[in-house]
Amino acid sequence: MSLIEVRDLVVNFHSRRERRRGRPNAVDGVSLAVRPDETLAVVGESGSGKTTVARCVAGLQTPQAGTVLFDGAPVGRVAKRPPEVRRAIQMVFQDPAASLNPRMTVRSIIAETWRTHRSAAPADRSWDDAIAELLRDVGLDPGVADRRAPSLSGGQCQRVSIARALALRPRLLVCDEAVSALDVSVQSQILRLLAGLRASRELAILFITHDLGVVRQIADRVAVMHQGRLVETATADDLFERPGHPYTRKLLDAALDLEGA
């Protein structure tokens, strides 16, 4: 069974009157599913609606129509979700520095998750020990705990974001362009980290990106979005070998052009 399933999602950011005049939907009837152990990448150009799909899954955006099912049960926006569901879906954002409150230390950022979800807090040892271990798991020095976001690099910020998400032992990690703001060598480090965590923590990942190179590195399956619609879903191997939809082919050609140049 799918861990998370999206059915016929419709989101429109325009006012009701403009919608009647035929302004297009940002997301127009998208359905997709993520299995408990896979990485699904959603690709598409800017404005294709992929981030909006991610925000609906996380519950940060309320769709006009359609449902999001978690473990087969429909879930609404984040404030209305039961604590267990809320805990199970965590997110890593695009802007590394802005993902962390610049006035808070890494320690208090991670501790905030446990203060909110007592059931996820480490019971058998001190929080400081648990934070140090978590930071080591994401490849950071435990000494980072006392620093704040403005003194960290983009890659370090993103690792802290991942640590914050993992602190709640989620089952689905939504990565919204999580490596787009990083330079290429840091990108592949973070991608390797995510792949490793996925294996060791039984994590499903919904990975939003515009970068097909990233897709090839991390995705099991790929969903291609174009102008709010899903145009193709395929396994990663199939997509790169035998792209079905003309738009997918165009995307691949554009990516190859860049690599060749």
Binding site: A58, G59, L60, V78, A79, P83, R86, R87, I89, Q90, M91, F93, Q94, D95, A98, S99, L100, N101, P102, M104, E112, T113, T116, H117, S161, R164, L168
Partner: peptide, 19 residues
Amino acid sequence: PWVDAARLIGVPTPVVIVR
């Protein structure tokens, strides 16, 4: 995003505003 992250975790609204 840091406010979104707090909402995702489920930090109560008054705490989000204050912190």
